[in-house]
Design a protein around this nucleic acid. Sequence first.
DNA 1: AATGAATGAGGTTTCATTCAT
DNA 2: TATGAATGAAACCTCATTCAT
Lengths: 220, 220, 220, 220
Amino acid sequence: MLKKLSPEKLEEILETGIEIFAENGLHAAPMASIARQAGVSVGVLYKYYANKEDFFRSCLRHSLDSLEGLLREVTSKEDKLLNYSRQLIRALQSFSALHPSHIRMYHQITVSSGEAARLLASEIEGLSSRLYTRLISQGRESGALRRDMEPGLFAFFFDNLLMMLQFSYCCDYYKARMELYCGGMPEDSAVEEQLLRFLESAFTFERSLVPHGDSRGENR
Amino acid sequence: MLKKLSPEKLEEILETGIEIFAENGLHAAPMASIARQAGVSVGVLYKYYANKEDFFRSCLRHSLDSLEGLLREVTSKEDKLLNYSRQLIRALQSFSALHPSHIRMYHQITVSSGEAARLLASEIEGLSSRLYTRLISQGRESGALRRDMEPGLFAFFFDNLLMMLQFSYCCDYYKARMELYCGGMPEDSAVEEQLLRFLESAFTFERSLVPHGDSRGENR
Amino acid sequence: MLKKLSPEKLEEILETGIEIFAENGLHAAPMASIARQAGVSVGVLYKYYANKEDFFRSCLRHSLDSLEGLLREVTSKEDKLLNYSRQLIRALQSFSALHPSHIRMYHQITVSSGEAARLLASEIEGLSSRLYTRLISQGRESGALRRDMEPGLFAFFFDNLLMMLQFSYCCDYYKARMELYCGGMPEDSAVEEQLLRFLESAFTFERSLVPHGDSRGENR
Amino acid sequence: MLKKLSPEKLEEILETGIEIFAENGLHAAPMASIARQAGVSVGVLYKYYANKEDFFRSCLRHSLDSLEGLLREVTSKEDKLLNYSRQLIRALQSFSALHPSHIRMYHQITVSSGEAARLLASEIEGLSSRLYTRLISQGRESGALRRDMEPGLFAFFFDNLLMMLQFSYCCDYYKARMELYCGGMPEDSAVEEQLLRFLESAFTFERSLVPHGDSRGENR
DNA sequence: AATGAATGAGGTTTCATTCAT
DNA sequence: TATGAATGAAACCTCATTCAT
């Protein structure tokens, strides 16, 4: 019985798929390129996956598995948002350095539309949205975080910053944009430090405490 | 570029292009659809524009003109970051409601790669990156904003939040994601209020002032 | 305005389609062959027809139009089944000689299955089934034809013979089969004469009149 | 042909082949489906049969063996055409009910063309054409059947009716067509009775005896 | 000058056949 | 010997671009 496709080969195919999807987008990625680059024939792809859509879903699932593993690992070590944040930033920086194609593929996914967009969003963002909202609610109850915030929206802002960070490490357009803002690619440690400061203040200080007063009130 | 097209027709062609590019992406948008929907022949498109790429650049330029107009208008009225922020948020909310296709087209652009990505980023983000960095530097000098920040990175975070907000109003995937975080589409006013609180705190409170202490130090 | 596709060219495309469908079958006929043989590009086919299925339907309709024209013409001249039969046989012989591909395409259609088969059958056979059944019923009422028959089944036998005749003139397999039975391709006139004798007797003599008695009765 | 396959397995493979060829046609039947459904590997098929064509020929031969057995059995019991007809109709009705795939495969064969068509026709129709022609000739000599007929053509008409009957019981298109003519699927017994009446009259009454005269002469 | 029909390369998917195991 | 994974040619269909009218 010919078992040519070892788990390693299958892994390689999926990683190649992620790479090509990341580069070309879901629609424009040629199955032939994936096959060629993975060193197999197109027939192999269609033996293991019903069609392009199915293959893409498998690539996504493969990637999400490792990303969710990362998320769970970080979560298991910390339970307070701000402590957790530092670990998370570092983990994302390292994931971005190791698997930039995965992040690029997620970014390609964000251009989908219609029902597919809704399904993909819930598959990709479901876990983190629930986690962040929970951590923030807990922090607010315990008094560790500010009270004058809506946890959902603040979780949304929080994830916006982290998602953009990843994209900025991996996607050409966002990379160029970050360099534009920072005058070159900033050090990982500088990003970590500054983003933590940004987040700490945003999540801990209530509006009434804002000190300088000069930017308050006149908008009402 | 010859000039036989009336300015109105030209405007219509470009707006149609933006719509179709926004919907389909740069690669998948059919020139024939654009021509048909704009009520001209494909021949006209290829008479005035060398090719699809060239036409796309013109659509982008057309859109940037109106977006930069908006930015300049808001800027002319305010010069302090936090006052400015409220105006900007409102302006972006209204722009997103009026011209969602423009925002979607910008989003489509973010998937480009290589040298094109760098050029597009600098064309689209150049103005705001310089503006935000300047406003933040000034605020830091004047004492209105915190001193322990790098203006470039904080400007980057600031724009990340605003860009994601626009995408979340206009692009299917991000729309679904925002609903996931907020349990439904939030009111414009709630978004405005919460994002302002988030930004105010992030930009004004220095780390040493962080009140509860419980999120410091215990990181190992 | 480029009007390259004259009605003549369109006709040529449809005739070529009929030819290729007749030769290869619906599924196996390559659109590229049709285009090449008709002297156009595949793009033309897909500009005028939504897809292969649609193109095939148009070929069928084109053919049915001429066949139904023929049927109506013969019908208009005669209203008694047996007079009508001679005209019909001659018409089918001449149609088979002029347009063998059409007949071969009908034959290819008979291998379709499922709902498609039902629809095609009703489209192709609807007219003649109604016509034959009506003629036979009328003949039975008037006393010109035997009374001890069910018009539907006799119409069915009648059409079976005519359909097989056409196929036997045009389709390789049936041609070979007819030669097997007749020891070579029979003259048109012999086929006409013999088939008319066959039909006349079948449609006019009632069972009770069967003369020789030796094949009667003992089967009951 | 090597012989390691048990006769039962061989039978199963051939029957499966017949089924798949019947359903999909010669061209579109996937060898892999046949192997899977028969519970063997494709390798086995290609070990015992040189290629698809060769395998198909074996399926046909297998089917012809049983059909010819049937024909011989009926023939051995009767020697007069009209007595024989009733037995034959019943036998074909029962064969159609038991082995519709075989009939469908024969039908699929009728779309073949070129030299293959000639060979297949002679293989499939040789026996019955010789048998029918002989029976009819004998009947004509003995006076049991009409004299004014050419045995070959009448045998041809006779077989046309029987072949169409089988196809009408088994093939979707012809089934739909028969329902169109009869307003629903007729009872086996009605078909038997009516077809016998049709055949009896066709084969026994000479033209000169045609009673009503109204369908004679006026054809110019 | 403007039109839009025509082109044909390129993408997805299927399946007969081979051959490593 | 038997397996069934792998191959890759060929089919459908789309769309950027050209160019006859």
